Simulated assay, not measured.
Amino acid sequence: MEHLDLFENNIQLTGRLGEVQFAHGHLELAQWFRTVPDEVSSHRILHSNWTERTGAEGTLDFLVAYQTPTADGSAGGSVISYQTTVSFADEIPRFVALDKTPILPNTKRVYAPTWAEHRVSGFMHALLGTQLTHAEAADALCDITDGVSKVDVWAPVPERSPVYDAFLTIGTADGNFHTAAWRFHDDGDTAFPAPLQIAPLSRSTVYDDRHPDARGTL
C-alpha cells in the first residue's frame, strides 16, 4: 500500500494541536511528503487509545518515541503525541485527520531501530485478523483459544536487514503470555516479511508477587 492510500482524499494533516497546517487533501499531502527528508529513523509506540465513534469512524490517539541517528553516532529525537480520526468506509481503515505534536525531548541517546519490529507486527496483526493467510503460522497460533489482547515484537536489527530473528510475545485475555522466536526473510518491498522458521509458542503466566494467587499483566 502506498503512503497516500493510508489517508482519505480529504485528509487534514496538522501539527501542534492544529496550530500548523501541513496539508489538506491528497495533492497537498503528496507535496508535503516530498519535503520530508528521506532519513533513517525509528518510531516506537509507547501508548495508544482507540475510541469507537458513531458510524464508520473512530479516534486513535498514541504516543511515539521518535529517534534519528546523528552525525556523532548518538541519536536525537522527541516524544510525539498523535491525535487521529480513522474511517472504515469500504472496510478499509484510512486517516481522515492526523495531528502530530512533539511534547518532550527523547533523552535516549542510543539509536534503537524499529523497522523490523513494525514489519513483523504488521504480519502478525494481519494474520490474527485473517487479512492474511499463512498455513504454518496459523497452525503455530492455533492453541491460542482466548482472545488476543496484545502483540509485542522485539527485533533490534538494522533497517532493511534481509533476514532477521523476531521475538514474539502474544498476550491473551486469560492473563497468559505466549512467546516464540521466528525467523523472517524481508526484501522491504512486499507488504509483509515472509517467515523462514516458525517455532512453537511457549505459554507463561505472570503472577503478582504480592498476591501469588492473583494473575497480573505486564
Rank of each mutant, 00 (worst) to 15 (best):
W50I: 01
R160M: 12
D165A: 09
R119W: 05
P93H: 07
A135D: 13
R44N: 10
N49Q: 15
G188Q: 02
D208Q: 05
A214H: 05
D213S: 08
P193D: 05
W115R: 04
T70V: 09
I144G: 01
V36M: 11
V96M: 06
T14H: 04
L13N: 01
S78R: 08
N10D: 15
D5H: 12
L218D: 05
K150R: 15
F123W: 05
H47W: 12
Y207A: 04
G175S: 01
L63T: 04
P113R: 02
G122A: 10
T107G: 03
F192H: 11
V110L: 12
A112S: 10
P200Y: 06
R34K: 14
D209C: 05
V36T: 13
T179L: 10
A194T: 13
K108A: 13
D61I: 01
V120N: 02
L46M: 12
R160H: 15
N9E: 15
L4T: 08
E159N: 08
G73T: 06
A180E: 07
F62T: 02
S42F: 03
V96D: 00
G73L: 09
D174W: 00
F177K: 00
H43F: 09
E2P: 07
V148Q: 04
R210M: 08
H211K: 07
T84Q: 08
L17F: 15
L201F: 06
L132G: 04
V151T: 06
T169Y: 05
A191N: 00
G25D: 06
A97I: 00
G216E: 08
T107A: 12
L218Q: 07
V86F: 01
V151Y: 04
T101N: 03
H185C: 06
E159Y: 00
R109Q: 15
A140N: 03
R44I: 11
D72I: 05
V206L: 14
L132T: 06
H211T: 10
S87N: 07
A173H: 00
T35L: 14
E39N: 10
T51D: 10
M1G: 15
D189I: 07
F22R: 02
G25L: 06
F123T: 03
A71K: 08
H24Q: 14
H211N: 09
I92T: 13
G129P: 01
T130P: 00
T14E: 05
V110W: 08
L63M: 11
E136Q: 12
K108N: 15
N9H: 13
I92W: 09
L13F: 14
F123C: 06
E39L: 13
A180V: 02
Q31R: 14
Q12H: 14
D186W: 01
A112D: 14
A181N: 09
E39A: 13
G129Y: 04
I45M: 11
H26C: 09
N176V: 04
Y111L: 06
D187F: 07
N49G: 07
